[in-house]
């Protein structure tokens, strides 16, 4: 593997910004969840690329933990979306305004 580390970082930044774009422009809660997953995967790419760069395995183990946390987040997020749909008949995040200041 001789791809320079810069390109891995650029790839991860591109993925992060795609996820941020999704969060800022979409209103569907499921799209939000997918965008957050994309941003988490951007972090994983960084962790694994720099683990290779430094020659130890800390980043790879940490990436596994990030994946487990992403799974936990999706479980809770889907539960929240389910309740959102039950209460508002919609998954539009701009509809529930009760907790807005």
């Amino acid at each position: 593997m001789s791809v320079a580390i810069e390109y891995y970082v650029l790839l991860s930044m591109a993925l992060f910004c795609i996820g941020l774009f999704g969060i800022l422009t979409r209103r569907n809660a499921l799209m939000f969840l997918m965008s957050v997953e994309i941003m988490l995967n951007a972090a994983n790419i960084n962790l694994i690329a720099f683990a290779f760069y430094h020659g130890n395995l800390t980043g790879q183990v940490f990436a596994l933990f990030t994946m487990a946390l992403a799974a936990a987040e999706v479980a809770v997020g889907l539960g929240i979306i389910l309740v959102l749909y039950r209460n508002f008949r919609d998954v539009d995040v701009t509809v529930p305004t009760t907790m807005r200041w």
């Binding site: 810069e6 591109a14 992060f16 910004c17 795609i18 760069y53």
Partner: peptide, 25 residues
């Protein structure tokens, strides 16, 4: 969001990583 990518890409491309990937691993 696109502008943020531009700024971050500029930062990365101006950073000099000392170790080459061929030596790492």
């Amino acid at each position: 969001a696109v502008a943020l990518f531009g700024v971050m890409a500029l930062v990365v491309l101006n950073t000099s990583f000392t170790t080459q990937m061929a030596d790492a691993g």
